[in-house]
Amino acid sequence: MSILLNKKTKLIVHGFTGAQGSFHAQQCLEYGSDIVGGVTPGKGGAEHLGKPVFNTARDAVKATGADASLIFVPPPYAADSILEAADAGLSVIICITEGIPVMDMVRVKKRLTALRNAGRDVTLVGPNCPGVITPGECKAGIMPGYIHKKGSVGIVSRSGTLTYEAVWQVTSQGLGQSTVVGIGGDPVQGMNFLDALKLFQADPQTEAVIMIGEIGGSAEEDAARYIKKEMTKPVFGFVAGKTAPPGRRMGHAGAIVEGGSGTHASKVEALKKAGVTVVDNLSEIGGAVAAKLKPKAKAAGR
């Protein structure tokens, strides 16, 4: 088991024929992901990377039975592609695009919430994220595939390269990952820490979870409340931005301390109180997880 993606996942790529879409779709195909086609309006009927191109997401789903979507559409049009994917019935929508206006995401969030309230199974991951990977089964994103290894550590993170750092440390310790989810660095996004933690808690393959947060917003604090109440698996955390000056946007639109909220101190305190092992030094996160999981694996004779 894993979360969000597995070897049965059929992916379609929005913005398939663009430079970014082509490059990363090719990388995903080489990893072994089952990309069944792509969407580029006006190029329906063509073939790209050996896969069919469709004009609309509906056409793509009808012809291929796809259930997940990977979006590389440029910022001004990306919100529309998310909604198109949702309308076409895709249940996992992963949006890589960086730079979507917040107000567009406000509208997207409203519609997705309405669909879910009406009983539709639809989950958005991102935008402005590296994507999702279930090692050895399906890679839907821009992460380097080879650093991952199939295993039992679930990872959820707001930042791309920080995720790779954590993945690499886990792999270097001889452990592996169940699924790695990049939720992205935007202030209004799809899946948040809480949603990912719930999935990892319910996933039998996942034995421990790493969450990589950063300053801004209150998603880490919300996650801490859930961890304290419901989570039985060990959680390891790191929060980036301890030394970031308030009021300045540190790259990610969401990474900003405003009016005294979203500070590093408040997040670390909330997570520690919830029983999360928080490392101050990022270089130590892989070792911390290994210290917990390796004796357990030994005892179980693995």
């Binding site: 930042s159 990589i212 950063e214 980036a240 931005g241 970031a244 790259g251 990610h252 990022l282």
Partner: peptide, 10 residues
Amino acid sequence: GAGLAMATLD
């Protein structure tokens, strides 16, 4: 990467 850049400052 923005996150790694922030973590580097820390």
